[in-house]
Structure formats: C-alpha cells, structure tokens
Design a protein around this nucleic acid. Sequence first.
DNA 1: TATCTTTCGTTAATCGTTTAACTGGTTAAA
DNA 2: TTTAACCAGTTAAACGATTAACGAAAGATA
Lengths: 344, 344
Amino acid sequence: MKLSDVAAAAGVSSATVSLVLSENSDGRVSEIVEKRVRAQAKKLRYSPNLVARSLRTQKSKTIGLISDTVATTNFAGQMLAGAEETAWKRGWLLIFVDTSADSKNEERAIKALLQRNVEGFIYASMFHRKLDFPLQLKNQPTIFLHCSLNSLDTHSSVVPAEYASATLAMDFLIKNGHREIGWIGITNPTVGGRERSRAYIDAMKKLKVKDYKSLMFNTFESYANDGYVGAMELLQSPRRPTALFCFSDRMAMGAYRAANEVGLRVPQDISIMGFDNQPHIAEALWPPLSTMQLPHYEMGTWAANRLIDELENQDSGSTLCEQKEITCELIERDSVAPYHPLNK
Amino acid sequence: MKLSDVAAAAGVSSATVSLVLSENSDGRVSEIVEKRVRAQAKKLRYSPNLVARSLRTQKSKTIGLISDTVATTNFAGQMLAGAEETAWKRGWLLIFVDTSADSKNEERAIKALLQRNVEGFIYASMFHRKLDFPLQLKNQPTIFLHCSLNSLDTHSSVVPAEYASATLAMDFLIKNGHREIGWIGITNPTVGGRERSRAYIDAMKKLKVKDYKSLMFNTFESYANDGYVGAMELLQSPRRPTALFCFSDRMAMGAYRAANEVGLRVPQDISIMGFDNQPHIAEALWPPLSTMQLPHYEMGTWAANRLIDELENQDSGSTLCEQKEITCELIERDSVAPYHPLNK
DNA sequence: TATCTTTCGTTAATCGTTTAACTGGTTAAA
DNA sequence: TTTAACCAGTTAAACGATTAACGAAAGATA
C-alpha cells in the first residue's frame, strides 16, 4: 500500500494524502477531503515506506549504537536495553553494532550506519573508561555511554558516579558501626578501580583509621579467585577487618568462599559489601549480597534521550553538552550486619 | 559523494558508474573507462547511499531479529552476538528489537522493520519453548531461534538438543563411576525442564538403578535457593546420592551451599554437574563447575546463516526448512570426581 | 466592475540509485 | 548489398515519499 494507492482510492492527488497524513495540512485541505483520505488510508492499512521518506527528507529517525561487545557482556546489556527502549518509545529506531573492540570493524560499522542515513550515534563502552575521540564520528551528533572523552568539552557523556557511589557504600558500612574496613580491589588502571579505591581511602582518612593501607589488598584482575586471594590475606591477618568492601560482586563471591574457609560467618563475623549488583550473582549468593547497583539501564536511557533531544530540535540552540554522572543505588541485602564488639 | 559526482568527475553518465561499481559491467564498459571510474570513485571516497539503493531495488540487505528480552538476559545475549556477527560478516545488517514479550510491542516492531524494507526475520526466545506462529510474520522469511513452532513444517528453527545433551552429562557422571545420581530440576513446564529430566530418567533406567524416583527433587523455579532446598533434601536423605545433576548452574550454585552446610566436600564427597555454563557463575564457583555449554552463540550463527542463505538464493529452490538441534558441549571443570567407595 | 485574497488542491521536481531500452557506429555473416 | 550482431556507452523511467510553486474558483474589497 503506497501513498498513490490511497490517493487513487480517495480520489485526490498523492500530495494531498501526504499533506493530510503528515499533519501538515494547516488549512490546506478541507475537512471533508481530509476525512475521506484518512478513511481510505485506514481501510487500505496504509503505512508509509520509511525508506522512501528517508531518501526524500534525508532523515531516518534512526540512531546507531556502536559498542565494544556491550551486548555479550551480560549485565551491561542493560545499557543496550535502556537505549533501545527509550528510542523505541520516542518513535526512533536504534541500530546496534558490536565492533568487538576492533578499530577496523568500528570504521566499517560507522560507515555502514552512515550509509543508512543514521542521524546520530551512541558510542558505548563495556567498562568505564576514557578515550580519544573516534575520528570517523567527526561532526556526527554523538553521545558517549559508559565512557568519556579525554578532551571533554565537545560531546555529552554519561558514566556512573564511581567516587560518589563508593562513598555511599562506605557510608553504609560506617553507619553500621564498622571502622576496620578492608578493601579488595584491582590495580588494573580503570576509572572504576581508581575512583572506588580513592573513595575508600578518603572515607578511611575521614574516619581517622590509622594505617588503613594494611587493610587494603589489590590484585590485577577482578575475578572471583582474586577476591578469594585478597580476602584470605586480609581475614587471616592479625588485624582482621570487621567488614570488607569489594571492588566487584565477583570479588565478593571469592570473599564469601574465603570467609567460609576461614570459619567466619557472613554477616555475623564479617560483613561484605560488593559493587555492581551483577545479576544471578549478587542475589544468588548466600547470604544475598549487599551491593551497589550500577546504573546501566539509566545510563542507556539518558544517552538515548539526550541524543534524540539534540536531533529533534536542531534549530533550537539547546546543543549544550553535558558530562553526566549517575549515582549507583544501594542495594541492601543481608551481607552487612551492624558491628558488634562480640563479633571479633 | 553521490554517483553523479563520480560520473561527472569521470566524464561519463551515472549509469556507467553504477554499472562499473556493481560489477555488472560484463563487457559493457571498456577497460579504460572502467579504470577511470574506479579511480574517481576511490579518489572521491564514494560510498553508495543504501537508502536510495534500497528504494530502487526493494532490497535492503537487512534482517530483523525480534525477541522477548533476549539482550538483557545476560548469557542469552550470545545468541544476539552470534546472529549479529555472522550477518555482519556476510555483508548484512541486523536490526534487533526487544519486544519485552508484549504482543502489542511485537506487532509494532514487525511493522517498523517492514517499513524499513527488512528482508527477513529471526524470531528469538529467551528460553527454549514452543509457540504458535506469529501472524504478522505470515509470508515473511523467518527463522525461529531458541524456540520452535507447534506446527513445525513451515519454517526452520534451531534449538539446543536438550535430551541428547543431558544424556551426555549423565554419561559423564556414569563414566566417572556414579550410579546413585540425584536429580535437581524444575516442574515449570519448559522444553528444557521436560527433556533434561527425561534424559536423566532414561539414563537411570538404563543403568537399572532401582527406585530412582527417590533421588529426584523438583521445584517450580530454578533459582539458586531452589537448588539449595533440593540438595539439602537429597543430601540429608538416608539414600544419599554420590552425584547431583542439576537442571541449571544456578541450582548447582545452591547445591554447593547445601553441600557445604552439610559438611560434604565438592567433589570429593559429592560430585555436582550443572547445565548452561552460565558466565560468571560456572567458572567462578569453587571448585569450578562442570557443566554443559548451551550453544547460544552457535544457534545465533546458524539462524543468521540460514536466513541469509534463503534470502540470497531466492531463485534457487533450496527453500527447504529444517528443524535444527545443536548439542551442548561438555565443559569439564572440577566439580565431578570419580566415584570411590571410600567417598561414602 | 476590476482586483485582491483566500481556500483547496494539483503539478512537478527531487532525494540517489538501478536498469530496461535505446543509439550510432563498426564489424561480421548471409 | 542487406541484415544482423556487437560495442560502449547514454537516456530516461522507475522506486515512494515530500514540498515548493502554481492555479482555479469563490469570496471580499475598493
């Protein structure tokens, strides 16, 4: 069913049909004709050919999301979901391409999307990092998702508020009476690793805990086993902490095992705090893990909304760019208990 | 850069450029002109406008994947990845839409894709199930991914070989000398639940284990805690099994906890076999869990290849449809040990 | 009455390709 | 010599929308 079919059925020209259906007919079409056109369009189940429209208008109501493996890395798929759903709700289509962190792929992907008249991009990273501007996106409307630019005054970006969120986690531990808090983290230089540990250190300083460095343990990676190793170290040291703040839920998972092995009960003997709220882990551990919910979904939502805002009012001068940080939500489950002198 | 720009630069008509660049110029363009055209195209960095081409040819080299939340459910995102990557490799674009299992959404999604001249569909399900044919896809080339049709002779589908794979898992346990094997599964009527438990039962029958039913425990859902409950029951019963076959890795995770609580070591005192090879769980447990790798990625690959095959040789009569089953791979880690009389 | 507006539509160009049909000249076959 | 085939391209019509520019009839104004 194309425009001209409807036009023929309604006995008018296709221009008229177009005018009516695009709500652009301010006084140019009589009410009676408009009704006739609408009736026929409905009857024939007309739906516009977006390819033709796109060719004519040079718009596509489509945005592209390019990412390094964001879809496969389980819980970060929430970013995709958030972006896709909001685009969808606002009448836009989101095309997602995974470049597997390969720059040749990335180039091809951007080209392929541009060839399809994509109007703007979301550039998403699997893990929180800073990067240089991808040149192929020069003068394309672009939002950075879960990453930000080294030179950050040209485009909007949205990332988790690592420092603020980790501070929230520490506050929670402290509010529960803990002072001897251990840190299990990573040396791998990522924004998350750096900022979360900085928050830990600042909180410990503020608490005036002396020599907190002996309560810190860092490994390079953040797998469960790294957490195990770190927790074994800390839990068996003479200065055993009463709570453990782990860089990630996976490390927390390892910490659980260490606690179990050492004969410490969670949370009665040792409180454990995670980070990420990784699905199928955080709530499946026993006891369920208290942790910080990374705002993946919200970030995806924000990025899509922002981009579409920019695209929909190109004329309006609202093209300010913003470096957005979203704070993680505290997910209180059962792995943190109030400190009690008897614990020790 | 459009065709006519290249044409002007090369001093020929745009038809000629089109002919040359589409490799359709069998003897219609002299070599010298062809060279000139190619040189100019390269110099001007011409890349065809796919929207215009699509309008003209009524093809889009694009397929749509519609799914109920396949992207957000972590490890099933591998299906998406598999489909997307193969489409990409073969020069096709895959557009993915998540319908959140809402039929209104699904209708809109299919319409939106059709409006963009999508040439075929992959219909993906988050969990293995059977369904009725979605009417909007009538006479659209469609492959069913991780699901199959109730009336299954019209379209191709690809699913995991549940029965065969579960049999493989049982064989592995049996090869390790176990006979008293417990089953922890679900009553929730899914293909996976039904077929895996059937494989268990058949294996036990074949082994001639008497009254194997007292070694089975089913709950409705398959969360970690359900596995815990089931394992507690089985491990504390007078007839304690020497191995546990769990419907899912998450249930196995619960079984680990139960074993630990009861004072049984994995795998020395109790062997545990999972199913799914769920990322971040199976390998993060201690000891790492032996399990079956669901062929998500391969299924995605198969679906995309199949669909594109169909689309690329529409003329050729190879439109046979196939009900494909892919067997899971056994992932041997450390949670299964040979049975030894002393174990008990 | 002559002229100007308004109203309600239509015409035709355009977006960037593809492709069937054509052209004008040369060469080969009958 | 006529006819046919071939060569190396070109012309122009699509594909299905949008939209600037135009136009005819009716009503308003001077």
